[in-house]
């Protein structure tokens, strides 16, 4: 049923650190690689070697330029996948019941066996987190690697999403955001994690950690105290300093 659960036992999700993401697309491709041969239909690519290649990805990295009122422009790499919203509009719009949010862990999934490929859920999602696969005709989205995180065929330490496991810079964190004592919740609290488009009232589970303040050296650093301004003065200092060693 596409009604949203009253409450979820856990709120599993991702925390993405925009201060650390270098924009390498590792998470994008590893997600594609894992998901093309696991959950549901493969993620297809059309005109793969031709003039207009296009394919299904569950996670994509944008690059933005942010220009402060005063100071130097910054670049922010911005990975985006499903945010597993608490108030997921993509779920309630679904006419077939294919889209659902799990009460046990809050993961939003599409049951492809039920999906008729109407695309309405993708329209309902503010974040572009759903893509209709061109060849399979069913809706694809981030599964939070539900087939990894509980998978007893994987070693315990690997029961995390593929994108988190692969991220070279450690910019992606996975955990229970419903538990205020979890590492991810603490991280969000420490770093003032934010929701994307709060005005859409989707209550995303995934949080984004904003970049730390940048280009502050000029304000922060104290000038060096000079011991010499020319070679002779330096020599005198040198002699003294060597003596003190």
């Amino acid at each position: 049923m596409t009604a949203l659960p009253q409450s979820c036992e856990k709120k599993l999700g991702l925390v993405i650190d925009l201060d650390t993401c270098v924009g390498c697309h590792a998470c994008v491709v590893n997600c594609k690689e894992w998901n093309t041969s696991n959950y549901g239909a493969p993620l297809s690519d059309t005109d793969a070697y031709g003039a207009d290649p296009s394919g299904t990805f569950l996670n994509r990295v944008h690059t933005y330029e942010v220009t402060p009122d005063v100071g130097v422009p910054q670049i922010v790499h911005f990975p985006k996948s499903c945010l597993h919203c608490d108030d997921a509009p993509c779920v309630t719009v679904c006419p077939t019941g294919a889209s659902f949010k799990r009460s046990e862990d809050g993961i939003v999934l599409v049951n492809e066996d039920d999906c008729m490929g109407c695309g309405l859920c993708a329209w309902a999602c503010p974040y572009g987190a759903r893509e209709l696969d061109a060849l399979a005709g069913v809706m694809k989205k981030c599964t939070l690697c539900v087939d990894r995180i509980y998978n007893e065929n994987l070693p315990e330490e690997d029961r995390i999403p593929a994108c988190v496991r692969t991220c070279p810079s450690g910019a992606r964190h996975f955990g229970d955001l419903g538990d205020p004592d979890s590492d991810v919740s603490k991280l969000v609290a420490d770093r003032s994690g934010v929701d994307l488009m709060p005005e859409m009232q989707t209550k995303p589970v995934n949080k984004y950690l904003p970049p730390r303040p940048k280009d502050t050296l000029l304000q922060d650093s104290a000038a060096l105290e000079l011991v010499a301004t020319e070679p002779k003065g330096f020599l005198a200092w040198l002699d003294k300093a060597l003596g003190a060693l």
Partner: peptide
Amino acid sequence: TGPENVSYG
């Protein structure tokens, strides 16, 4: 040249 479509999995 490569094939038109790919769905690796």
